[in-house]
């Protein structure tokens, strides 16, 4: 167990270092941030002064060494554009993204799992066939287009919901959240639905196939033969079995929800860290891009670790050494 944890932690650190180097070098080649940021009238001396002030006159490895050194102290540099610590900017925007991702995951679970269970239990009914076909469609709809269609339908034609932005937020334990007010909910609904659609279809199909799998197991057949109540069979025996893949996949997909939030946030002007990333790429604000990627990588690595532990908790048969 501890050996496993140590190995996972080392691997996580390795991922972090590799990503930071890749990202750092990558952003370097995009363009010269100074041309964008220096005043139109500036002359050579101004440019040289700013370049030195930002540490951009050093060779890239010196800049990277400085960067890694500072990173060890929790400092990821100052945003060129905002003049504030980059990590703070990212963390400021994180609650909005996490709220969106959690809301989307909950929607996906609440809709996808029951429907998947139904499809798995009654595969031949027409309703199951319809749901199955719809899930395939949900699987195929590109996120950004769905967002646009929602905006057009609910925002423009029907006028029921706002077309973007975050709306009113209330503080919960010092963190601004949308779910404390009606206005916040109205703003959250469309982006969360958009983001949830793909995961919902995924979970639905996963649940359906896990259910079919469970129904074929001997103990379920046995329970049926013994004349146990069907509801009991489904909710105790089957559900217990499909829980493991659902938890694993939800955990892993949470990371991809955060990544896809980049798209949803852009469509709905949701002020999360994904929108910050797209803005930072546009402005060549390298410290912010790097900070975003490092924060998300850290987040993913943590999520993966947690999923591994949960997996072990739910299914004692699994040795933590290897994951199928």
């Amino acid at each position: 167990m501890s050996g496993f944890m140590i190995r996972r932690l080392i691997q996580a650190l390795l991922v972090l270092l590799t990503m930071s180097a890749l990202v750092f070098v990558a952003v370097f080649a995009i363009g010269d941030p100074l041309a964008l940021l220096v005043d139109p009238q500036a002359d050579r001396h101004d440019i040289a002064r700013v370049r030195a002030g930002l540490g951009l006159d050093q060779p890239w490895w010196v800049q990277y060494a400085r960067f890694v050194g500072a990173m060890a102290h929790g400092d990821l540099g100052r945003s060129f554009v905002h003049g504030e610590p980059a990590i703070r900017l990212v963390l400021e925007r994180m609650p909005a993204t996490l709220e969106l991702a959690v809301a989307a995951l909950l929607i996906a679970l609440l809709v996808g799992v029951p429907l998947g269970l139904w499809v798995g239990l009654q595969p031949r009914s027409w309703s199951a066939r319809l749901i199955d076909a719809l899930s395939l469609l949900g699987f195929s709809l590109p996120t950004f287009w769905v967002g646009m269609m929602f905006i057009m339908l609910f925002g423009v034609w029907l006028g029921w919901l706002p077309t973007g932005g975050r709306g009113e937020t209330t503080l919960w334990l010092g963190i601004p959240l949308s779910i404390g007010s009606l206005d916040g909910w109205r703003h959250l609904l469309l982006p969360a639905l958009t983001l949830a659609l793909f995961k919902c279809s995924l979970l639905l199909r996963l649940t359906a196939s896990a259910t079919r799998e469970a129904l074929r197991q001997d103990y379920v057949r046995f329970a049926r033969a013994r004349g146990l109540h069907p509801a009991r069979i489904v909710f105790v025996h089957v559900f217990k079995n499909i829980l493991i893949p659902i938890v694993t996949v939800s955990g892993l997909e949470f990371g991809s929800l955060i990544a896809f939030a980049v798209v949803t946030e852009t469509v709905f002007a949701w002020p999360g860290m994904g929108k910050l990333l797209i803005e930072a790429i546009g402005q060549l604000d390298r410290p912010v891009v790097v900070a975003y990627l490092l924060v998300t990588v850290t987040l993913f690595v943590t999520i993966n670790l947690v999923v591994d532990l949960l997996y072990a908790l739910l299914d004692p048969r699994v040795r933590l050494r290897s994951r199928p």
Partner: peptide, 13 residues
């Protein structure tokens, strides 16, 4: 201001 990305110095120079 040493870390200004777009300084106003062209006006003060």
């Amino acid at each position: 201001l040493t870390n200004s990305p777009g300084p106003f110095t062209s006006y003060t120079k």
